[in-house]
């Protein structure tokens, strides 16, 4: 077993609504090895220095989406961000930007969940099929059109990066738009028209100012900015087509 030889300072933004008016930073000295993630550093604090520190985590391998936080001001998954990359300087961790803090590094994500739920994130079949008829056929090329957008782990780093969401928490935002796009372009689905209503709405994609930071911070290369912008195009197209086509543009 390797020895803990180095000490890094981790500054954590603490907040307990039962005792604190405002969040404030607290610094911990954490022994670390080069293979330790920021998450492991925070776990060390909880296990050995202060049991009251609260944060979400689970899988440790960048797939469950729980452990997103601001690390030196940039949204990251703490499980795949390594202390060695900050040492010997102090590393600063805070709850994700743009969300209400429930406690310490835990944000309130109910609003995000409501957005996901609102976009009908499930297949509404174009042509219903019984199980006895077997699977829908879908070529690798057809799969490729949406596969990337189905890889979102709901970590919300893109919301913490999105200046528009920061200004207007009602904005549907990057991940929910990517998910909407994922179902719209799936060959099995026939409900694009219904979903596009949401994109046209007040809080739809036109709020995006094309900063593109969402795609930059995405740990899964979902490229939500691309989904947002494809939907802007679709939305504009749809807007014009609805005047000239009886079925509207969603086809």
């Amino acid at each position: 077993m390797s020895e803990h030889s180095k000490i890094i300072e981790i500054e954590v933004l603490r907040y307990n609504p039962e005792t604190d008016k405002v969040p404030s930073p607290q610094v911990f000295e954490v022994p670390f090895t080069d293979d330790m993630s920021v998450l492991q550093g925070i776990q060390y604090i909880k296990d050995h220095l202060d049991g009251s520190l609260s944060f979400r985590w689970s899988c440790r391998m960048a797939i469950c989406g729980s452990c997103g936080m601001m690390i030196n001001g940039v949204p990251h998954l703490s499980c795949e961000t390594f202390l060695r990359d900050y040492y010997p300087a102090r590393v600063r961790v805070e709850a994700l930007n743009h969300f209400p803090i429930e406690r310490d590094l835990v944000i309130n994500m109910e609003g995000f969940i409501k957005k996901l739920e609102s976009i009908q994130p499930y297949i509404i079949p174009k042509e219903p099929r019984t199980l006895a008829q077997g699977e829908y056929l879908q070529t690798p090329e057809e799969l490729n059109r949406y596969e990337q957008f189905s890889s979102c782990i709901n970590c919300m780093l893109c919301y913490a990066a999105c200046p528009q969401f920061g200004l207007n928490p009602e904005f549907i935002g990057p991940a929910a738009t990517a998910l909407l796009h994922r179902y719209n372009v799936d060959t099995r689905d026939g409900a694009k028209e219904e979903r596009m209503e949401l994109v046209h709405s007040e809080e739809g994609v036109f709020h995006c100012t094309a900063v593109g930071y969402c795609s930059e911070v995405c740990p899964k290369h979902v490229d939500p900015a691309n989904a947002v912008n494809q939907n802007k195009t679709n939305s504009a197209m749809d807007y014009f087509l609805r005047f000239i086509s009886p079925k509207g543009g969603a086809k």
């Binding site: 077997g134 699977e135 829908y136 056929l137 070529t139 189905s150 099995r188």
Partner: peptide, 22 residues
């Protein structure tokens, strides 16, 4: 097989053969 097909109908992005089967 039926349950995995059910997931396919619900949208699971199963990897495909060139002719479109799972």
């Amino acid at each position: 097989p039926e349950e995995l097909t059910q997931l396919e109908h619900w949208g699971c992005p199963w990897s495909r053969t060139p002719d479109g089967h799972v």
